[in-house]
């Protein structure tokens, strides 16, 4: 009898512990959300190291992909990379949408505008170039 109640109590306790840990996880997630990515203090590898890992791997991918580009298309390659590097617009979007700071709003707006010129201009001019490359009519 006593053993049975003990067992149920233990079960309840375990459930509560589970709920608590889930709550903790939620809290942790929220904390991570609010600070976007908690920085070097959180558990595991620092973002700098992760970033460096990504950088080095991406450079290798870029190296191999770009060498396979045919020399005839080197101008369109510059056009498209130009547009791709304007992904920096993401930084401007975050700045403009964060609110609460006039500097951030203005800088965000300027960055978004400049990057948009590049995105639209870069992809379009690349498209114009590429649509000129035609095969021999046979």
């Amino acid at each position: 009898m006593a053993e049975a109640t003990l067992a149920t109590k233990a079960g309840e306790l375990a459930d509560k512990a589970g709920e608590l840990s889930a709550g903790l996880a939620d809290l942790a997630r929220e904390a991570a959300m609010t600070t976007m990515a908690g920085g070097g203090e959180h558990l595991g590898t620092s973002p700098l190291v992760i970033g460096l890992t990504v950088l080095v791997l991406a450079v290798f991918v870029g190296y191999h992909v770009v060498w396979s580009v045919t020399p005839a298309l080197h101008s369109p390659l510059m056009g498209v990379t130009n547009a791709i590097s304007s992904v920096i617009i993401v930084g401007g979007l975050i700045a403009a949408l964060s609110g609460g700071s006039a500097v951030s709003d203005v800088m965000g707006f300027l960055a978004i505008t400049l990057a948009s010129v590049n995105i639209f201009g870069g992809f379009l001019v690349t498209h114009r170039m590429l649509s000129m490359f035609k095969k021999k009519k046979r």
């Binding site: 991406a58 870029g62 590097s85 920096i88």
Partner: peptide, 11 residues
């Protein structure tokens, strides 16, 4: 941004 930047940088 790191990936896109590195692709363009190496290109």
């Amino acid at each position: 941004l790191i990936i896109a930047g590195s692709l363009v940088g190496s290109s």
